[in-house]
Amino acid sequence: MVAPAETEASSLVVREVRKSFPAPDNPLSRRQVLDGISFSLGAGELISLIGPSGCGKSTLLRLVAGLDSADSGDLLIGIEPITAPNAERGLVFQDPNLFPWLTVRRNIQAGLVARGVLHEKKNEVDEFMRLVGLEIFANVYPHHLSGGMAQRAALARALINHPKILLLDEPLGALDAFTRMRMQDEVLRLWQARRTTMLLVTHDIDEAIYMSDRIMIMTPRPGRIERTIPVELARPRQRDSGDFLRLRSDILKFLHFAGKS
């Protein structure tokens, strides 16, 4: 059983969040990017956020990470408002963004060094390198890694801080189809092993259905969550099962109509 206090601490609440940016063509007007976003994320949940590019998915993720601040509305972890980036909310981008001047091992332990706890937690570095299967690449520089390996290192780097929420911004978007499917299983394995709450931004419908407990569909200009769809398929999911395909065509239809209106 998960203790209630922990449940509360790991849950994310987003309430009526708005965010606008100066319009690129006219600096006097502002463009509404997020328009009243509300949702909540329970401890241990894996939720996908899908939608066409430019609908504000990444902006929302940056707000949750604390890298930007909202114009209005609340972002809470439990009852604590999000004000600044924090090691409790890990972030993985589409580009692994490994520090090229550090070896794989030093990249993975970067969070421990940044928080000044490397000394106490040195043994965890090996554990996390094993977790993502990169032990033998410990002393290799990132440019020697393939895209999938680099993304696994980035995941380990984010997970070593034991974040309460892991934010994934199209983490598998740059990988080829086969690597991507392998990595989806990898992420699911990490999620199940560590019960980390995950918020996954993707524009791949199959990926969203295959991985998440719920799918939130965003529409652009201004960005809104149009619909939330629970995915009640048993895990491990079959990508070619009837239910899977039915759900897929429902979402496609919805996105198609939403795009037209």
């Binding site: 600044a84 980036p85 090691a87 963004n97 520090f99 060094v113 940044a114 928080r115 801080n161």
Partner: peptide
């Protein structure tokens, strides 16, 4: 900017951002 963003979400303070990210970069 993304190196700095990643470092911030890893719990980096200003000293880490300057000496472990900006300067090596």
């Amino acid at each position: 900017a993304s190196y700095l963003d990643v470092a911030r979400t890893l719990g980096a303070g200003r000293a880490y951002l300057i000496f472990h990210v900006a300067i090596p970069a």
